[in-house]
Amino acid sequence: MLVDYAAPVAASPAEAEAAAVSAEQVGYDGFAAAETRHDVFTTLALVARATSRIALQSAIAVAFARNPMNVAVLANDLQLISEGRFRLGLGSQVRPHIERRFAMPWSRPAARMEEFVAALRAIWAAWATGERLAFRGEFYRHTLMTDFFNPGPNPYGNPPVALAAVGERMITAAGRVADGMLVHPLTSAEYLGERILPVLKSARGNLAGFRLEMSAMVVLGADAQQRARAEEAVRGQIAFYASTPAYRPVLELHGWGELADRLNLLSRRQAWTEMAAEITDDVLNAFAVTGDPATVAAGLRARFGRVIDRISLYTPYEADRYQLAAVRTALRSEPVSD
């Protein structure tokens, strides 16, 4: 299992750059940046110039805020700048954000995402071969590429594409057209084993060469007081995710469908404190691993060690970097639990 460092979601591009340099120096395998307050491609361009070894991941770039040509250019440039270290992680976001924040169209997200990736690959293929670009789909049409705008074949090849997915249709799309899948932090071991893996295998036939990557929620601290603060933040983050209707199937698997409904109603009132209080210990323990670094590493190994290829730690609080480093070391050295 490779261990990546995930930049704090509120980090500025410059802060992410500094964090990536530090992550490379201490031995992380990869660096993942999210797209929340800043453009993820801008952030990773800075990171690519400041580092030389560490793999780079957009986790995620919002696909439907753009179009396949935009993303093809951005990803191609990052692959060039990083000299082949870039991995393109794409996600759909949810309908209100696409329509109301980005003013972009939304319909049939899984089918649209599958076509998005197909268009992306068609554009890259046209650049690599010089053949005419002639992609015509239901959602996207790309039929013009002159030499003036053609960057030509990328000497490092095209970056691998991973899709973020939770529901069955998007998981199927990932299995059909992507090189890997980004497993959402609100994922239990049971949901991964009983829902995600069977759907992927049905879509692909087998998982050979297909990489599963995950940002896993952990409650980490040097003492009980630090862990209590971390636990409060993680309860709030679980409540936030679980209030989103798209993530309801995860809770339903555990018999917590009514909790998802309550959280959704509370979120409409922005009752964030009340929402966090709804997260019982059972819910917390299903989606997060708690303890000191050795305990956290052992828990992550037991849950995901045989399935997840790359992992990062999701900490919606200010985690001690030495504690994070200790988890990384333990993850690499600890055998998979029976």
Rank of each mutant, 00 (worst) to 15 (best):
S188C: 04
D147E: 15
V199H: 10
E190P: 00
R176C: 08
A165G: 09
S188P: 01
S243E: 04
N150L: 11
L163H: 04
A189E: 11
V161C: 09
Y241T: 08
R248N: 06
L200G: 01
I238H: 00
L265F: 13
A164Y: 07
P198V: 03
Y191Q: 01
Y191H: 05
G255E: 05
P160E: 09
R204K: 06
A162S: 14
R227H: 06
R227K: 01
E232L: 13
V250P: 01
L212G: 00
Q226D: 14
M181H: 02
R269G: 07
A233D: 12
V166E: 07
G221P: 02
E231K: 10
G209F: 00
A246W: 15
L265R: 15
M170V: 05
L251Q: 04
L182K: 00
H184I: 07
R176G: 02
G257W: 08
R262E: 13
R269I: 03
H184V: 11
P151Y: 13
A173E: 01
L197R: 04
A208D: 12
A242N: 06
R248G: 09
N154P: 02
Q237V: 13
A228Q: 11
E231G: 09
D179T: 04
E252N: 08
Q237F: 15
A164S: 15
P153V: 07
P245R: 06
D261V: 15
L182F: 04
D223F: 03
N150T: 12
A239N: 02
V199Y: 06
T244P: 09
D179E: 07
A230I: 03
W256S: 00
L253I: 08
V199G: 11
A162L: 15
H254K: 11
